[in-house]
Amino acid sequence: MSYKPTNEDLMAYLYGELDESAKAQLDQYFKEHPEARTELTEMEETRVLMSQWEDEEVPVIPGFIQPHENSEWLYWRKYVAIAASILLIITLGWASKFNVSYGEDGFHAGFTALSDGLSMEEVAELLAKERENILAEVDNDLQGLQVGINDNRSFMENSMERFNELPEDQINNLLSEQKQQIVAEMNQLSDKLTDDYREVFRQLVVSFSNNFETQRIQDLRNVEAAFNDLEDAITSKQEVFEEALYSLSVEVDALTPNNNN
């Protein structure tokens, strides 16, 4: 039966972790199979090559501080901190008179002593009192108005009575005085208006006449210019006519000897 080592055997041999009997068996095998020995030698060389990578130096080795003395305290520290926080909150709440309660009326929270709100009866009583006050004020106002109306009425009645008591001629005098006064005011107004209108018309006529005269002068100038143009036109036509006549006479003179011939 031929022996053939496994890959695992080769590794154990390579690293010197094979027991003596197995090692002897493998040594014998290598003598008979040099190619297997060569493979192992190549692996050995690979190991030598890989061993060229030396160790790196560690930059800093930190020191460990062992907190044995305080380990109990470190464990309980967080719970003590929580308890202290709760105590602090309670103390602050007590110092600031913070109150919280929950009852039939609901949840209450506040910084002063808690007191329940008004009952329905108390609220109804307050509303009734307020209503009475408002009604009393309205009554007072109405009474004041009534008194004022009565005063005015009595004053008017008194005045009517006194007016009726006056004699008829005195009334007529009063009325005629009033009438004369009104007429005088109307006359004054009329005079004032008359003066104003007269001035307006005067200015209107003056401006019209001024305008009219200006317009007339302009028209005359236009006519004059038109006549001048006409005169010029006539003169020029006359000259043309004379020239024409002259040329005609020249032509006639020229024709005359021929006719004579």
């Binding site: 890959n7 695992e8 080769l10 590794m11 690293y15 690979t46 190991r47």
Partner: peptide, 8 residues
Amino acid sequence: KSRLYYAL
């Protein structure tokens, strides 16, 4: 051992 063999 097997891993060592293949790795090498």
